[in-house]
Structures are given as structure tokens and as C-alpha cells.
Write a protein that binds this DNA or RNA. Structure first.
Lengths: 231, 231
DNA sequence: TCAATTTGTGTAATTATTACGCAAATATAA
DNA sequence: TTATATTTGCGTAATAATTACACAAATTGA
């Protein structure tokens, strides 16, 4: 049995699309889903879907992430809402978008429910994407590039334990500029938001590096004192 | 003749709500509309309305502003999208919100089409407002307070010609802190984004002040050189 | 044990920010 | 017309933040 829903005025559909960003192999990557349905069948697109009844926007985003990638408890923020009437060839669909930062990668592979093929693409080598998703991705990158300077987003992209060099490289990749190592370390350590662990990395080559963790408690204390993160 | 619109799945309605901010008499003010229909009849609310067919979100915002206040060519930016299923007692209505900054005030009075009563309220003395509009207003104020520090929003709130004291007072009101006059002037003038006019104010009392105008051309040049406004 | 690689550290020079007080121009009241 | 109240416009010294820059120590692999 099929029920239809009837309204006095036309209503656009509402979808939620997610820009999932991960950092691996020294590059920022974006997760895309391979479309097998029209429109844009065969193209890659952001993981998204339609809003369900009784669902809030953020609930919808979380559900979609779970369905498409198995990811739970992601760090996410609402990005922007796109509503040009012609952005979807089928009909007017308004897309509320979120960006999602993740720090561990295999999420994608081990999800039983997933049907569509998904893959990570380096942000500098994105394929041709469906709909206005290229514009959405650009807005996401701009937002993250700006925001990583004044809010602790970077730690969401790294594993829990990281070296200062890894942190610096991440900033360099996102900001697209090189930073002085000594000044970077001085600044980050003086902020007093990192917890020094007494562990070091074991690597193939070079002096082992001390591992650090982001200390959210210290960070919140800092915020209360109206001192803000700023690179 | 009445046509109905039918869909396979339920669709929330989509509205656009605007937080209009103006600066007058040394205070930031917000424009509210007095509701005469249910729900929340008798309460004040943000000027908003439903999205029309074929309309983009920003077009909708512009249309509503025109209808409710007569204002044209406003400075506006998308703020956030609110979508909790219970935010409207009637049904699920998603609200895409914009903030609008205006620098000349009588807009409100001389609009023939307007039906509802509208009024400006100082942001510190807002009445009890309908729906989740108090939350929306809070988000708008937080956003403006943050953004005025690193983008030239302030000039949208002042008349075209203004004195440095007026500009300073505006910052003081929004940031809720006092600023040193000499340092403020030094900083703003050193940015080289103001055009000094050879006019002065004529006031009741005190030394006349030189008028300045925001120089958008200089500002854009600055942006291109990757130098950013920052208070 | 030598070479290659990566980490970890200090200081001096430069630039930006802060703190602070007084004279000049005007309107108003005496 | 003179005195008073008010507001503008301006400079400097002290402090804090940012920048530029090089070498020794710890490790791996040859």
C-alpha cells in the first residue's frame, strides 16, 4: 500500500549532503560515492540522501554517514544550504550540507550495509562530480582553511596521538604554505592545549619523535578565560 | 480553482527568516514583525515567509525583505539552517536564515505594501519572540560579533559618511568592550581602507569631526594582496 | 662506523600592541 | 565676550608577539 502526501503549495525536496574530509598519506582526501542511478549515473557525488520524516538535519546527516560508511560519532558542522532551483535536474531539491572530519580511515571498507562504491579522493585530484557538488566541496575547503586557524579542527583530522611534525605538516597542507618548525612548536606548546605523552614514534628513519595528544580539558579552560586558539 | 501537490514521501515546508540588524541611537536593533495569526498570535517574530516555487533561497530572502519592509539591495549573508522537527507547532518547517545589515533606517515606515506591524527592538531588550527565533537571533549576534573583527561588516551598519568616533562606538557596542581612541584610530587608518572626506560634522557640542567613507576599491586591493581586515 | 634522515632547541631583530594626557575646536551658558 | 563643557585629534615609550635563522642528537640502513 502506497500513501501519498499532498500539500496546497509545491514543496522542494530536502536532502543532506556531507563533505567528509580525512587526512592520509600527507594529503587531504574527500569521500565520494559512485552513482549508479540517474541523474548523473556513473559520476561521483557526495554521500547524501533525503531527509526522513521526523528527522532533524543533523540526525539525517549522522544517519547517512552511518549508512554509507559505517562511521559513528563523527565530528561535524553544518556548512551551508544550497537552494538554486536548477541545481538538480529532476526538481527543486534543497541541500543542507555538513562537513565531517575524521581521523581514522578504514571506516569505509568494513561496512556491511553499504551498497554503493565509495572511495577517497585527494582534494587536488577530484573527479568530475555530480550536481553542484564541486561548488559545495569548494565552500567546505574554504571554510576549513579559514577555520583551522582559529579553532582546533586540526586535531579532528589526526589520530589521537600525533607528533608535532605531523601536526605541522597538516597545517601546511591545508593552508598551502610552509611554516617554520621552531616557531610552530613554540607557538603550539605555548598554547598549553597539548598533552605530552611519554611515548615516541618508531619509524624507519630519523630521530624518534615525542607523541602528543590534544587536551580538550585544557582547551575548554582556555576558552573560559576568553583566550582563543589562533595559529 | 485549487491545485494540490502530491509527493510519495512527506516533505517539510521551507521558510526563510531574516535577522535584520540596524544601528541607531548607539544601540544595535533588530526588526521584528507582530504576528496576528496563529501560532504565536500576538507575539513578535522575525520577518520570514515560505519559499515560493522556482525561487532560490536568497531570492526568497530578498523578496520577504521587500514585502515586509520595502528594503532593496540589502547586505545579507546566509546564517544557518534550523530544522528540528518540533520547531514549529504546526508541522515540520525548515528555516533557512539570513542576517541582514542595514545602515539607514526609515525603510520600515514608508512601505505601502506592508500589512503587519513592524518595529525595531534594541538587542538587549527583545520581547518574548515566537518559535525558536530567540535561538536564531542569538546565533546571528554571535556570528556578527565574531565576524566584525575580521571582515568589514561594520561599514554596512553605518551611513556612508561617518566619523571615526562613530565607528569606534559601533565596535564597542557590538564587542561589548571599550577601545582606546588613539589606538583605534591608528589601527583603522593604517589599514588604508578609509577615504578621508573633506567634510566635517556639525554638531551641538564639541570639536567637529572629520568624515570618512569605506573605500571598497582599496579594500579589494588589500584582499588581493592577501592582507586581511582584522581589528 | 658512516651516511642519511628527522627531531629538538635559543636568541637576536623586527614588528605589533598597549598604555597614557593634553591642546584645539566648537556650542552653550553666564 | 568670556568661561565652561564637550568632543576631536594626535605621539611616544614600554611591552609583547612574531619572525628569521643553524646545529647537535637520535635513529635506521648501507
Amino acid at each position: 500500500m502506497k500513501i501519498d502526501y499532498t500539500y496546497k503549495y509545491p514543496r522542494p525536496a530536502i536532502s543532506v549532503d556531507n563533505v567528509m574530509l580525512g587526512y592520509a598519506d600527507g594529503a587531504l582526501k574527500i569521500l565520494l560515492v559512485h552513482r549508479t542511478n540517474e541523474p548523473y549515473s556513473g559520476k561521483w557525488a557526495l554521500p547524501g540522501g533525503f531527509l526522513h520524516e521526523g528527522e532533524s538535519l543533523s540526525e539525517c546527516s549522522v544517519r547517512i554517514l552511518k549508512e554509507k560508511t559505517g562511521l559513528e560519532n563523527p565530528f561535524m558542522e553544518q556548512l551551508y544550504t544550497f537552494g538554486a532551483p536548477d541545481r538538480d535536474p529532476r526538481e527543486h531539491i534543497i541541500s543542507v550540507t555538513y562537513f565531517v572530519l575524521i581521523n581514522h580511515f578504514p571506516v569505509v571498507e568494513n561496512n556491511a550495509e553499504k551498497v554503493d562504491q565509495v572511495a577517497w579522493f585527494p582534494w587536488s585530484e577530484l573527479p568530475d562530480v555530480a550536481f553542484d557538488h564541486a561548488a559545495i566541496i569548494r565552500v567546505a575547503i574554504d571554510r576549513i582553511r579559514a577555520k583551522i586557524r582559529y579553532s582546533p579542527l586540526a586535531f579532528e583530522l589526526l589520530p589521537e596521538k600525533f607528533t608535532l611534525s605531523q601536526l605541522q605538516t597538516l597545517f601546511e597542507v591545508i593552508l598551502h604554505q610552509t611554516l617554520d618548525r621552531r616557531n610552530f612548536r613554540k607557538k603550539l606548546l605555548s598554547m598549553n592545549i597539548l598533552q605530552e605523552l611519554n611515548e615516541t614514534t618508531t619509524k624507519k628513519v630519523g630521530k624518534p619523535a615525542v607523541l602528543y595528544a590534544f587536551d580538550k580539558k585544557k582547551y575548554d579552560t582556555m576558552l573560559q578565560q576568553q583566550i582563543y586558539f589562533e595559529l
